[in-house]
Simulated scan of single mutants.
Amino acid sequence: MRRLPALDVARGLAIVLVVLHHAVLHLDAAHLLAPWWRAVNGELVLLRMPLFFCVSGLLAATAATRSWAVLVRSRLVPLLWVFVVWSLVRFALFRAVTPQFQPWEADSLVPLLLAPVRPTTGLWYLYALAVFTVAARALGRRAPWLLVPAAVLSLAAGEQWVRAPFYVWHQMARCFVFFLLGWCLRAQLLRLLGSVRAGPAAVCSVAGAGLLVAHGAGWLRGPGVAGALSVVAVVCGLAFAVLLTLLPGASGVVRACGWLGRRTLPVYLVHELVVGVGTSAVVALGVAGAGRPWWLPVVWAVLAVLVSLGVHAGAVRAGAGWLYSAPAVLGERAGGLLEAVAARAGGARRVGRPGGDGRRARGTP
């Protein structure tokens, strides 16, 4: 199926919410945040990463038809490369520039060294995406069987009934089901998104926003409510993306969100550095005493997106594109190594099979 514009719009909206989230966190740490932003940011947790992972799973589902060697070369190596490279960049910059309110990943060298097995970095989405893709590809046609257990795990993690020892693992437990939904229901979701009309999309969008407001106001509480609302929020977020593509007066917004949705990686990698350095500069210049304007997180988010895209464009022009994509030789070697291991393992099985090559090796020319 052709790629629907609504998917890029949804990714664009999701990355904006991620940038806004980190702007709120840094401004709050610097005591520059209007208090009500905490409540808004707390409600958006039901939509932000679940929507991001659902769309990512939907777009990654074509990997189910690829060989392991192709999957490693084209997807896993690039993801892990940027995860490692930018973990180093973040550690160095946050240690040097933002010592007052740096992310906890920069507290010491130990979290950095343990990042491949115990990530504490703000880039955890990339790590989780690689792990989720491997898990779903390994399950193959059995992947839908895991939807119910993954939903139970997500509910338990969201309600704090189970608690992983590290934040990233906890978030992965909460979000895996949304990646699986996109991965397993790709064909159904594409048909649904391609057939929905503006009226139902508008009703769904308004209903989803109303439910989030009601939850934030305390009117919708109880065991499992947040998990159910998160699923509803993802559905309504996709409906809102479709609605934007259907509204005649929203063509400019659609083009902007779609364009951004196809460039989420540069924004994701750099935006928190921009927010952190900018917040440190504001504090160092003594501007913090000027108050806590409500619009500051929005300005910070827009600035972070624009600077991130500018940094990416400058890096590519300067020949530093390797910061954003793994060297081709690395992917080729990893894929080739996997193919060689698979071929050797397949040969060993054939040689040891009764009545096969093993019999010929024992005596028959």
Rank of each mutant, 00 (worst) to 15 (best):
L247G: 04
L260Q: 00
Q160T: 15
A130R: 00
P200T: 04
G336V: 05
S87C: 09
W219H: 12
R292M: 07
R362Y: 12
P293K: 01
V18S: 02
R262F: 05
W124V: 00
R186W: 05
G363S: 10
R350C: 10
A361W: 15
A173K: 00
V89M: 08
R141N: 09
G140Y: 03
A106W: 00
G286R: 09
L4V: 08
A157E: 08
W124K: 03
F240K: 02
R163H: 14
P165G: 07
V131H: 02
S308H: 01
W183Y: 11
E159F: 06
G261R: 08
A151W: 12
L192T: 08
A228T: 09
A290P: 08
H26P: 04
A320C: 12
L180E: 01
G261W: 04
T62C: 10
S87R: 01
V77Q: 04
A318I: 06
V283C: 08
L25E: 12
G310S: 05
A361G: 06
A207S: 14
L129G: 06
Q160L: 15
C236Q: 00
G210T: 08
S308D: 00
R48E: 07
G218K: 11
L109K: 05
V275W: 04
G261S: 06
V206W: 07
A345W: 14
L27T: 05
A128R: 07
R360F: 14
G210E: 04
W219G: 06
A64S: 12
H170R: 11
S308G: 03
G182Q: 06
V283E: 11
L189R: 00
L260H: 03
Y268E: 03
A143L: 04
A202L: 15
L114V: 08
L71Q: 14
V283W: 07
